[in-house]
Nucleic acid binder design. Structure first.
Lengths: 121, 121
DNA sequence: CCCTTATTCAACCATGAGGTTGCATAAGGG
DNA sequence: CCCTTATGCAACCTCATGGTTGAATAAGGG
């Protein structure tokens, strides 16, 4: 998982981790607090938090034996930026008929006949 | 992968698939066209497209032997909505000192001595 | 009909992710 | 000091994922 975007999307591709993010949005919490609602072991939750931390979605302080987790906002911007770029592109070509033109975008396909795309009804 | 959000995030947690999305934002394309730039086999790309299709990020028509892929916009809204909710929450608590208050969020316990959290410096 | 092109399906392999348990470490509190 | 609490690390298991190759299907074209 070289790049950050991959790490972030992968981190959020798990219901438990998304739930943790949701709960951290309501305030910081310790590993044990976070683990309580789930059936899985505390260690498993600890692993999940490590994933979130590595992805930069979560940071942690020290408070005696506890390691309270804090939701970080910056990374969300990274995702939003990526998504918005393609969402806009997809919406534009959805509203117009660009989709049809796009069929012959890559190569003019000299002999194949460029207008065969019109058959797509 | 029960829910859609999981499928979408998982689909985008792969550089190749994100690249495919990026290229489809520039216009529809066939499997072969999409596969060309990569070293991996056409079959592998076909698999990637199936993942994107299952996640609802891509749809496909039929055009003779070809199956042109088309980027779908709706799913992006789903993601954006999810992200925005928590981004806002994270930013709010970042700007204020809510993080400190959050330490005692789970149990209000007003008599336990609320100022022990002040030790977290 | 057979051949070519485009795409998928099936079987297989290697790796990584999420889960478990058991032990180690950190930090107070009798 | 030992005990309890909170957390992390390591070894292990299982299954999903991404890749491969080889054959099958779909759709034209000579």
């Amino acid at each position: 998982m070289t790049d950050r975007l991959t790490a972030v999307f992968a981190a959020l591709a798990d219901p438990v981790r998304r739930d943790i993010v949701a709960r951290l949005a309501g305030g910081d919490a310790t590993v044990n607090e976070l683990a309580k609602p789930y059936q899985i072991s505390v260690q498993a939750v600890s692993k999940h938090l490590k994933v979130l931390e590595t992805a930069g979605l979560v940071s942690r302080r020290r408070d005696a034996q506890r390691r309270p987790c804090h939701l970080e906002a910056e990374v969300f911007d990274l995702m939003t930026k990526w998504i918005e770029r393609y969402r806009r592109a997809a919406e534009e070509r959805h509203s117009r008929l660009d989709a049809v033109l796009a069929c012959m975008h890559t190569e003019p396909s000299p002999n194949t006949g460029p207008d065969h795309t019109g058959a797509a009804s």
